[in-house]
Design a protein around this nucleic acid. Structure first.
Lengths: 216, 216
DNA sequence: TCACAACCTGACCAGCCGGTCAATATAATT
DNA sequence: AATTATATTGACCGGCTGGTCAGGTTGTGA
């Protein structure tokens, strides 16, 4: 390999780094602002300030407010879907659902803003990700329902409508992000400690697993 | 009673009716618009159009957008709190929690927009009803926790952290309103039928009640 | 060193927003 | 019939918003 080619590759990489770093900054700020103010209440100026960039620079990387929002929603959707990996390799409901609750609770904790954006998007009729709901999410859901039904048929858990079980799992784990402020207020205004998060996870898992006839 | 006094009372009542009717129209439209667009995305013009009134008329009854929003949030909060009545008279968890789930599922179904507004408000840090969270809601929660703890002490249900049980109840029932669009999409784009709502209720109750050691 | 592409940004704009207000209409009271 | 209180509304306004753009800077390749 010639030296000039070497330099060329590095240079291209540096350009990419600038772009990637700025996009990261913007997306991070956008996620927070969209979460706290909603799409309608968010302003490009506020996102720019939080990202430490001039507003015009945002429009260099993302042509419109909607395009930026779209990217934020897609990012959290990816994370959301990947939490399902824990579901798949499991031999039974105790491991599968247990791991899924753990993963989704971690998302609520670590990606609170993203979770809020996702909830907002769905609540407002999913104007941006309706196609995802009808495609990817639908397929994912059908697959998981089949897995759960398999466990039921194999006598590994009680007969429960798998669909509503999924909703219950989504609801419960998501709640710790979306209603985090309410929970924090009821917790004396303090955010959950590590220990409290563990207790939350354990209680949720205990109730649900016992609820579907799995003795932990 | 003199006739003039009679007329006076009727007249006053008519005036009151006009006011009440218009406020109702406005609040109903506002609930829907705030739910679908969020506080920031909602516009007074849109609410006015939906209510069939000129925008200036809205400001006659509600001085500011925020005041209107505040009233919408308070209304749904009242409904939300009253669902707890079913909790109180119950002799044990089977009846109490069963009735509470029923009541809250009905709220999700009948007051979907209001539920969305409430979720939005809390998610955005409760800028308007923080005092309610710290006062009324806190008291309510402590009271219910005591009731549940009483049931546990009396051996009527398994040992479960009452606080997280409440969160699980709120989350699960609220989910059918807040993520109603997602659920509808996964239901083939059709809203739940009466039968499906009944199945949802029954499944939720079955899992939770079994989950806390109550055999239905 | 030069040419070119990618990146940056202050200044600006049209349009929409919440809110105001003066003028008017309607209802209630005397 | 006259007066007062309540309700209604079109027209208007300052301020903010998303978005544009021309001109400048920095990095890259030959």
């Amino acid at each position: 390999m010639s030296e000039s080619a070497q330099v060329s590759r590095i240079s291209r990489a540096r350009r990419t780094d600038i772009r990637r770093e700025n996009e990261r900054l913007i997306l991070e700020a956008a996620e927070r602002v969209f979460a706290e103010a909603g799409f309608g209440g968010a302003t490009m100026q506020l996102i720019a300030d939080l990202a430490g960039l001039p507003k015009a620079n945002l429009h260099y990387y993302f042509p419109t407010k909607e395009a930026l929002y779209r990217q934020v929603v897609r990012n959290i959707f990816e994370i959301w879907l990947h939490a399902a990996d824990s579901f798949d390799a499991a031999p039974g409901p105790a491991e599968g659902i247990g791991a899924y609750v753990d993963a989704k609770m971690d998302i609520s904790r670590r990606h609170t803003f993203g979770s809020n954006v996702w909830a907002s998007e769905v609540m407002h009729g999913a104007p941006v990700i309706q196609d995802y709901l009808e495609g990817t999410l639908r397929d994912w859901t059908e697959g998981r329902i089949a897995v759960i039904q398999g466990w039921i048929d194999a006598g590994k858990m009680a007969q429960v409508d798998p669909r509503h079980l999924l909703y219950l799992l989504w609801a419960t784990t998501q709640h710790y992000a979306d209603f985090g402020h309410q929970i924090e207020t009821l917790n004396g205004g303090r955010a959950f400690s590590d220990r409290q998060w563990r207790e939350a996870k354990d209680t949720v898992k205990a109730i649900i697993l016992r609820g579907i006839g799995v003795v932990p």
